[in-house]
Amino acid sequence: MNLTVYLAGEIHSTWRDEIKQKVAALNLPIHFVGPMENHDRSDNIGEEILGKQPSAIFKDAAASNFNNLRTEILMKKADLVIALFGEKYKQWNTAMDASAAVAYGKPLILIRSEDHHHALKELSRKANATVETVDQAIKALHYILE
């Protein structure tokens, strides 16, 4: 069996690369998808498609439309969503994507530190599993494919 896993969360750190490398080392049959990781492309896609926008607000709205479209399509095709709540960056997109996964009926693994337990308690209860580390999420993937 092959799995498609949507990796939801901030795009500024290398946590996705860590998961991909560790999964590849275990030779697990997993294909990863996720949000546009090129931050400039994500911010500018609305203008790339629609042309110059009259203000920063319209530019953001146009980009959001295409980023949301991309996320919805890829997430709906995924078998599982992993959402990482990191320490350093704002986590609004992570919360939105994790909530969307729940709304779409997608199995969800949350990765969050113990420090975020209280703030994410409701979302954790909606997730299928909540772990504290990338390694624990990989162990869950390995178990699914046993």
Rank of each mutant, 00 (worst) to 15 (best):
A119F: 13
P107Q: 07
G86D: 09
H118G: 10
M75A: 08
A78M: 06
V131I: 11
S113Y: 14
K77H: 09
K76S: 15
A100M: 14
F85H: 06
K90P: 13
L80W: 00
L84R: 04
E122L: 15
A83K: 00
I82T: 01
E87K: 15
R112A: 15
E122K: 14
A83R: 02
L84P: 00
S124L: 14
P107F: 06
M96A: 08
E114D: 12
V131A: 04
N93H: 05
K90Y: 07
N93S: 09
E122P: 07
A95E: 04
L123I: 09
P107L: 05
S113I: 10
A98W: 02
K126I: 05
K88Q: 09
K77I: 06
F85W: 09
E114L: 15
K121T: 08
V81F: 01
H116L: 15
K121S: 11
A101T: 01
S113G: 15
A103K: 00
A129L: 15
Y104C: 07
V102E: 04
A78R: 10
S99C: 11
N93C: 07
L80Q: 02
Y89L: 10
F85R: 00
A83Q: 05
S113T: 14
A78L: 11
T94C: 02
T130E: 06
V102G: 01
E122W: 12
A127D: 06
K76A: 13
E122R: 13
E122N: 13
L74W: 09
D79S: 02
L120T: 09
S124Y: 12
L80S: 01
I111A: 06
A127Q: 04
A83C: 06
E122T: 12
P107W: 04
A95Y: 08
S113Q: 13
L108S: 01
I111V: 14
I111P: 08
D79R: 05
L120D: 01
A101I: 01
D97M: 14
D115T: 12
D79N: 11
K121M: 10
H116F: 12
I111Y: 10
L110G: 09
